[in-house]
Amino acid sequence: MKIAFGCDHGGFVLKAEIIEYLKKNGHEVMDFGINDGHSVDYPDYSLPVAECVSAGQADFGIVACGTGIGISIAANKVPGVRCALLSDTFSAHATREHNNANMMALGGRTIGPGLAVDIVDVFLNTPFSGDERHQRRIDKITAIEKKYSK
């Protein structure tokens, strides 16, 4: 799979562990930064990942900031993106199976690298169920997005 990754200074601590896991498992990584721990604005790193996923240039996107909150909010402004903030493996499984999420956000100050890698593993290896009820709900989300996108 092709995975787009981006983070700010708050998510930088997770970056090396996650990218090492991804590459070790045969995934191609598109790295949108950052490459050191200097303070930056998370929307600048969330946007290119979200645009890449929305355009179909990556299968999934992973973003990280201090809490994962701000960077996930920014990602979800891009049409076609369903970015879930994750801090446990149950939610990682559920958001793929039920919401067909195509991006995930992590908090570098809220979870450690070991848990982050476990969450990434579950997220990437859980397929969307395709159940009619889940697709119907996703279609309703898409309709809301279209209504308010100009």
Rank of each mutant, 00 (worst) to 15 (best):
G107L: 09
I73G: 09
C65Q: 03
C83Y: 11
D8A: 11
Y148Q: 11
L86E: 06
L47V: 08
V81M: 07
A50F: 02
H38Y: 15
C7P: 07
G66V: 09
I144P: 11
R109L: 13
G11R: 15
S39T: 10
A105W: 10
Y21L: 01
G68P: 06
C7Q: 14
A101F: 02
A75H: 04
T110Q: 14
V49F: 08
P127N: 03
T67M: 15
K146Y: 01
V49H: 12
S149W: 12
F123N: 05
V53M: 10
D44H: 10
R82N: 07
P43S: 12
G56L: 01
M30S: 02
H134I: 03
F5G: 05
N99A: 05
D31C: 02
K2P: 00
S87I: 06
I69H: 12
I3H: 03
M103L: 15
D139F: 03
N99T: 00
F12W: 14
D121K: 09
K150V: 12
D8E: 11
Q135A: 13
V117S: 00
M30A: 00
T126I: 05
R96P: 03
Q135R: 14
M104I: 15
I3V: 15
I69W: 08
A84W: 06
R137S: 09
D41W: 14
F90C: 00
Q135C: 05
G70V: 03
L22R: 09
G80K: 04
E51F: 01
G10C: 13
N25A: 02
H38V: 13
M103P: 13
V29N: 13
H98K: 05
S54V: 02
L124I: 11
N102S: 01
D118I: 03
V63P: 00
S54K: 14
N99M: 02
D88C: 04
V40C: 13
G11W: 12
K150F: 15
S149L: 13
M104V: 12
L14I: 04
S46P: 02
A58F: 07
A75G: 08
S87K: 09
G108D: 09
P113H: 11
C7S: 15
I34G: 10
E132R: 15
L86Y: 07
L86W: 07
G107N: 10
K146E: 11
V40L: 12
V122T: 10
N35F: 14
K147H: 14
G108P: 11
E17R: 11
V117L: 02
V53W: 01
G108A: 12
S72I: 01
L85W: 06
A4H: 08
E51H: 06
F128D: 02
F128Q: 02
E145D: 14
L86S: 10
A92I: 09
R133C: 13
H134K: 04
Q135Y: 01
D41P: 06
P79V: 06
V122Q: 01
G37T: 13
S54G: 09
E97F: 08
N35Y: 14
G114R: 06
M1F: 14
D131S: 10
I19T: 14
A116R: 11
K146I: 00
I34N: 08
R82T: 03
G70E: 05
V120C: 02
A143M: 12
I144W: 15
I34F: 10
L14H: 04
E97Q: 08
R136E: 14
A64G: 05
P113V: 04
L106N: 10
M30W: 04
N100R: 10
I69P: 01
D41Y: 14
D121A: 01
N102V: 00
